[in-house]
């Protein structure tokens, strides 16, 4: 509890950090140490935590790969910039994910997953404005998916460092989604607002 109060004072992000005594009430797995004594271990992980690490790692890796593609193939400067931002933000994010998931013991497949391999192949075949639009469209879908994945993990995850990771990452991902939507709208609709998302 002390920790929440400090958080409240310190930053916005961790205003929501789980109390020390809480595992996740909705997703607490039956094998949680201490559960029968009503002292569930907060660093225990459940199935949702493991699945989350796997999916988040796959997604983050693909964002970096596709971002590099956008840096080189994009025509519109904003699309190139968006690609750079993906490389930087998701690169950092992936490192943080690996640190946060140390105790979780998740299985992460190697390389780019089949779904993103298809996307990458399709994008490679496009050029110019077609590439820009298709890249942004794929980014909208990916960030929708990642935002939902993070919200789902915040809902059902149990491992505290990992839930904190999700809580801290979500606003950034939703910022990316907003920016991808704005850039896509800018390139496709005459009436789109000129202002950019502030992050």
């Amino acid at each position: 509890m002390k920790r929440i109060l400090i958080c409240l004072a310190a930053t916005l992000f961790c205003a929501s950090v789980l109390a020390d005594t809480m595992g996740n009430p909705a997703g607490m797995s039956p094998d949680t140490p201490g559960i029968n004594a009503a002292k569930p271990a907060k660093d225990h992980s459940n199935i949702q935590d493991k699945l989350f690490v796997r999916q988040a790692a796959i997604g983050g890796r693909a964002e970096v790969e596709l971002g590099k593609l956008a840096q080189s193939k994009g025509v519109d400067q904003a699309v190139k910039d968006f690609g750079s931002r993906m490389v930087a933000d998701h690169g950092k994010g992936n490192d943080r994910l690996m640190r946060a998931s140390r105790g979780v013991n998740a299985e992460i497949p190697d390389g780019v997953d089949p779904e993103h391999q298809t996307v990458r192949r399709e994008l490679t075949e496009l050029s110019g404005a077609d590439f820009d639009l298709a890249y942004l469209a794929s980014q909208i879908r990916d960030h929708q998916k990642t935002a939902n994945l993070l919200q789902w993990h915040i809902s059902y995850g149990q491992n505290q460092p990992l839930v904190e990771y999700s809580i801290q990452t979500l606003p950034t991902v939703m910022g990316h989604l907003e920016q991808a939507k704005l850039e896509h709208a800018r390139l496709t609709t005459a009436g789109a607002p000129i202002t950019r998302a502030s992050d």
């Binding site: 997703g27 949702q48 699945l51 999916q55 796959i58 997953d113 089949p114 779904e115 298809t118 996307v119 399709e122 496009l126 404005a129 077609d130 639009l133 298709a134 469209a137 794929s138 998916k145 939902n148 994945l149 789902w152 059902y156 390139l187 496709t188």
Partner: peptide, 24 residues
Amino acid sequence: VAVSAALGLVAISRLASADPLPPD
């Protein structure tokens, strides 16, 4: 953009997402 949109070139794979979120 207008031409390619008309030709449907920008359409990206229609496959269902490989890893949807779990039912919970």
